[in-house]
Write a protein that binds this DNA or RNA. Structure first.
Lengths: 125, 125
DNA sequence: CTTTACTATATGCTGTTTACATATACCTAT
DNA sequence: ATAGGTATATGTAAACAGCATATAGTAAAG
């Protein structure tokens, strides 16, 4: 199943590919953070579990893509943290992703309309 | 990339996993059809290309899941067609999928709000 | 009559991503 | 010491995607 679990309470339905990525970029654009810290933020914002192992891989992939940069933070107590921040490319990707998700949203509503017309015509729901 | 191309004009952004499946179920619930015929309908409804090879595989998977049934149609001119129809399990899945996609939609709008507040506060867009 | 194009279904292959498990290591409290 | 929380990372198998290719019936053109 999809790790972009933000998108759905149920498995198998309606998860959006790579939905975590814009979510992460938005969170990081508000304040830089590290993988372990993002889990809680993502869950708070999306009400869903995110697999921590895949989150780390996602962050590395996003860095490889140039959307985020990382630096080791050795100052604080506890283990070192790899702190991520958004790049200008990342902001650009975020903008495009939001635009694309808006189109996705239109198609979604298209389906909702079709379903409503075909299967909910005479119910009060 | 995702074959559920219904969900997006751009690749890499906002495609919804398994979005074709509810689309197919809705179309089939309106009138039974076959793989090759569904391509056009899906493109008409969603404005996107669907890989025909993957569509056939998707239909077989859906049949294996019990969501659709198929019969060979040898009557018409041209090559034989495997005609698909929705089962009651399929209608049940469609209902759940629509409900799940509604939750997905809520999360999408959550992201849109967050983005708007963080990055579009002082634009006229 | 044969070649081209359209209709129709299906499989092969490879890369990406996912879910789940596991490894490593620092730090704090008991 | 040892248990538990913080933190990053990799191993692995399965699923699914995109793209190419195989097969075959039909129909029109030349």
């Amino acid at each position: 199943m999809c790790d972009c679990s933000c998108a759905s309470q149920l498995k198998d339905f309606g998860t959006i590919e790579r939905f975590v990525e814009p979510c992460i970029l938005l969170l990081l654009s508000q304040n830089p953070s590290h993988g372990y810290g993002l889990v809680e933020d993502l869950e708070k914002r999306c009400g869903e579990k995110v697999d921590i192992g895949n989150l780390y891989r996602t962050l590395r992939r996003m860095e490889k893509n140039g959307w985020v940069t990382s630096d080791w933070d050795t100052n604080d107590a506890g283990p070192d943290r790899r702190t991520y921040a958004v790049s200008s490319e990342g902001l650009h990707y975020l903008k495009e992703a939001v635009a694309s998700l808006n189109r996705t949203d239109t198609l979604l509503h298209h389906l909702f309309e079709g379903y409503k017309n075909a299967h909910q015509k005479d119910t009060t729901l």
